[in-house]
Design a binder for these strands. Sequence first.
DNA 1: CAGTGAGCGAGCTTCCGCTTGACTT
Length: 840
Amino acid sequence: MAKNLLIVESPAKAKTIEKYLGKDFMVKSSNGHIRDLAKSDKGIDIANNFETNYIVSEEKKKVVDDLKKASKKVDEVWLATDEDREGEAISWHLCEALNLDLKTTKRIVFREITKPAVLKAIESPRIVDQKVVDAQQARRVIDRLVGFELSPVLWRKVRTKLSAGRVQSVTVRLIVEREREINAFNSVASYKVVALFTVPNENGVSVILKADLTGNLKTEQEAQSFLESCKGAAYSIDNIEVKPAKKSPTAPFTTSTLQQEASRKLGFSVSRTMVVAQKLYEAGRITYMRTDSVNLSETAMVDIEKNIKKNYGDQYAFPRKFKNKSSSAQEAHEAIRPSYIDAKLIEGSNDEQRLYSLIWKRAIASQMADAQLEKTVVKIDISTNESRLTARGEMIKFDGFLKVYRETIDGEEENNDDGILPPLKKGQILNFKSMAATEKFTRHPARYTEASLVKKLEELGIGRPSTYAPTISTVQKRGYVIKESRDGKERKYKVLSLENDIVNIVTETETTGAEKNKLFPTDIGLLVNDFLREHFDRIMDFNFTAKMEAEFDEIAHGKEEWKKVVNDFYHPFHEEVENTLENSERVTGERKLGDDEKTGKPVIARLGRYGPMVQMGHQDDEDKPKYAPIKPPLSLETITFEEAIDLFKLPRTVGKYKDLEVVVNNGRFGPYVLYNEKFISLEKGEDPFTISLERAIELIDAKEKADAPIYEYEGLPVQKGKGRFGPFLKWNELFINVNKKYDFDNLSTADIIELIEAKKQKEIDKVVQNWEEQGIRVEKARWGRHNIIKGKLKIEIPKTVDAKALTLKEVEGIIEQNAPKKKTPAKKKAPAKKKKATSK
DNA sequence: CAGTGAGCGAGCTTCCGCTTGACTT
């Protein structure tokens, strides 16, 4: 038996460290926090000077019991949780839960999981730092007080099940304010002038030289007169300026920068990035993925330098240390880097390989030399005109880190405008080809993507690496924010051109305002945000977290007592809560839009029981008011009278088909056609207000065709469909995924049978495996009748029972029931089709 | 799982930050 027990937070880390330490050490993990405030009464006795009530949650009991047992068997317990506030607190909770002496139990820390770092840490143990623990307690208690006092206010004043908190409410505020900026934005048009020349390159071949006019022209008239003024002009190079420039690599990844780059380069959502990174971490491919540090360990830096010198040459290596830009960083780990830098490629899923490659390149590039560039600016005179044109070129003299990695910048389009210029000299006369003045419009600020939101949160010091992804999912789950794509609108723009001394004007169209996977506030999000801003502006302040952090630091440095900090915060806050509950109106978001022309009835928009809606008429009119739900992209806040009137036009009967009515309406899943008691969704972009009977019939016919069984197997119909997880077959209440190996549009009979049979076997295997894990010996199992044999008894499972979920005890119960009264084994017949518990 | 929008009111919801699985239509 090992003499020492060392406890870390992550099981994957435990495995690695166990290898470094040898047989004297048993290494186990706490799997994160092991205790938390109880939920009842907030887990805090406020009247009793904020006495805390910590409990071990149900799912952590096993971990704690296991650690407790292990701790009793060893001479010494070492607490090696992360070196940050939360890690210190976990060590403290471990002492409390495992009955370890806080005064003597050894606490060690390392910021990197390398053998030298771990061995060195063991040499200098300390004890748990109560001051840091107290800072964490203050953080925890304040978050609980804010969350559990604010949320109930929302239940009373807005809607049940809503939530508010230090992090999530400010996150919603960011999105709300961006949306309002966009709504208030006025796009301004101007004209961008670009001229094209033909110039011989080194080989005498004619190439295009592009030059533009600095600053846009304000009006069409200005643009036209400028082009007119260039008629018959000669163009000559007035000046050529060549300047050296350099580009430096960015730091290796933190959680936040990894999420941003994976979003831009691979199109991953932040949660997908974290799931894939977790897999890489567990497979030992990368260092820890929840980190705010940009540091690399000494050993990693040495390895990377060697790798660069070997593969790219000495001149490419340039070791450097990065400083963290974010002041809230706690740096308990390394930056995210490959565990073994020599592994440039790895095995694994496509996602894993791509994310790993990104991490590898970024880590390598961070230790490479600057790229040396040469920037050229060419000024071109126009003989008929005072203005000058500018051509720009950029040449890479030495690629440096660009050899492996190029960071993508948000909002920057991939353009190669600044390419290599052909040879030019001062005074050279250029051969004019054409010139165009294109109408451009200023763009509103960009809506947040998940990744750009994470970047903003990090800048504000709000949230932690482990919470960015969960926070984004919380604000969506609460219905404050939706992530969606929206189609753009067509817009006309003018292009004036000058070619062969003729000025031409044409109007072209472009699509603008299209959004892909952007974050939009919902009406509830807007209303809750405004309500919180009005009554709890202190919590909603973007600097609230930063101010609290400063207080927590004071506690950690022993300059403040944690309960005093909590006390000072709580009382004024609680007073606001009481005051708001008593004095504020219920939030309805009501807006009067106008009066109906025909009836004179008022038209209002408000928040109804089931969400935002428009209402025509008054509650206590003799005939009931008309209602219609408001759905995105319309919103309670921006809907106009005309848009509201349109909404009342649904449901709309478009005509009859085979003597049955065809009705169009807007439903929970968008616009649909209702025919013969069947719902058929309209396709994207189709408008329920204008759809014709012919088109509706087309959809009805298509639906009937699609729903028709494609085959019949064992007397049951086989249907096709496409769901969340791709194409599937439905048979006998089973969903059967059809993978890319099959041609889904042209499945053969053999394919169908093969798929169904494979699925059957898989279902049987699941049941058998479950039973065998519980020690039930299964000798024979077949579809439709899961025969289990225990001893000599053979029994069939009744139809009503979910065979897969059966436990040993239940199986024994069934055996008991079916057991023969006499000695002879009995058999009972039942059509034992396994019914899967289907969840919605 | 696609029509709702009144009112009464039991019993419930909810925070942030550490972790890792289980498993979907």
